[in-house]
Design a binder for these strands. Structure first.
Lengths: 204, 204
DNA sequence: TTATGGTTTAACCATTTGGTTAACAAAGAT
DNA sequence: ATCTTTGTTAACCAAATGGTTAAACCATAA
């Protein structure tokens, strides 16, 4: 807040509006005019503050990923046992995504459109790595806490189970013949159902 | 083949080119000119055969879904036991998607863009329903073949584990630091790893 | 008060894009 | 052979879109 002169945090308003529009419509579907309208300002301001659609988009994209990264670190770089991490992560992540429903699909979609964006998010300070998690799985398998399983496959399984329903929401709603309310209930159930499902499978 | 007059299956060439472009770039990112170029014909032909971008897109979309639907029916409407179906489906589905890598993301993305498209695919003759699967799960739980689990949640889990990696390929490649070849290997592993993971979790 | 410099706007511009048209080509039908 | 229908093309068009500009605005320092 409290920028110089008469600037009523226009830059922030633009970013907020751009987040909304880009996350719902993607880079290709978004229109600069629509973002300006959503922010309640003149279209020229978008260029004044962010130069181009591309740069505005990148601001939104890196911002979005920096919200997601700490969530992933909860499963990858926390010190507790795998079982506890799975329980915590699943519960937390689903709560988190219910508040930011467009986030995962946005990131995945734009990464598909331009895989080079991955480099951009890798520069993020909190960028998560798999090393620790892989070692920990191997260790707990060794100690016979877990059944034999490949750490990478387990990681894929965990994020698949947690993220996919939020990426494929319309598909799930369609097959299950449920509305928004039913979907939310189903996702609430998953906060425990998913971790149970995983633990059941891997715990010795 | 063998259409009337000098038509060298132009309509088919257009559809094939449109599939390529739409599936990679989506409705918003695709350009009619690019489709025409990919088909090696004049842009006006696209309109001659399909009237508009929207209609061409819908032809591609329903076509894509009609490829996917039979796959889903293997898990939903086959007569074998859940365990066998999970094994079969996982193996088959992953093989299938390796051949059509853009398919799941395309369908999910466009369904997110316009959830009303779900109605379009519901008209498909082979449109899969959950009823049988749900009953079967309840039955096998009753008979104590399976641990207690909600059929809908199990369905979500199965498709999440199978589909997600192909939707989030760049993300997976990035985190696991693998290239195309490594990714394919990982997916080959999953043909058995995923079904084992599921069976481990649900079998009593 | 006035000069200064960041902020904001309406109007404008060049390009892209989906779509149309009119002329032409090729193959039956007569 | 010529007429008619279908297929194909180059040129064109209007609307949309990202981006620019020149002028106006306005808070503040001198």
């Amino acid at each position: 807040m409290a920028k110089t002169k008469k600037n009523h945090d226009t830059e922030g308003q633009i970013l907020a509006a751009a987040e909304n529009v880009f996350q719902k419509k993607g880079m290709d579907g978004a229109r600069m005019q629509e973002i300006a309208d959503a922010a309640g300002i003149n279209k020229a301001m978008l260029h004044y503050y962010y130069r181009s659609k591309q740069l505005l988009f990148e601001a939104v994209f890196t911002n979005a990923f920096s919200l997601l990264a700490p969530q992933l670190n909860k499963i990858l770089n926390d010190d507790s046992a795998i079982e506890d991490k799975v329980k915590n992560f699943t519960n937390n992540y689903i709560s988190f995504i219910i508040k930011h429903p467009y986030l995962p699909n946005f990131i995945i979609q734009e990464l598909n459109r331009n895989p080079k964006f991955f480099e951009k998010i890798q520069q993020n300070a909190a960028f998560p790595t798999l090393e620790k998690f892989k070692n920990q799985v191997a260790e707990e398998v060794e100690k016979e806490i877990l059944k034999p399983i490949n750490g990478e496959q387990l990681f894929i399984n965990i994020i698949s189970l947690n993220i996919f329903p939020f990426v494929a929401t319309p598909l799930i709603k369609g097959f299950l013949k449920i509305d928004d309310k039913g979907f939310k209930q189903m996702m609430e159930q998953r906060k425990t159902a998913v971790s149970e499902f995983i633990i059941n499978s891997i715990k010795k």
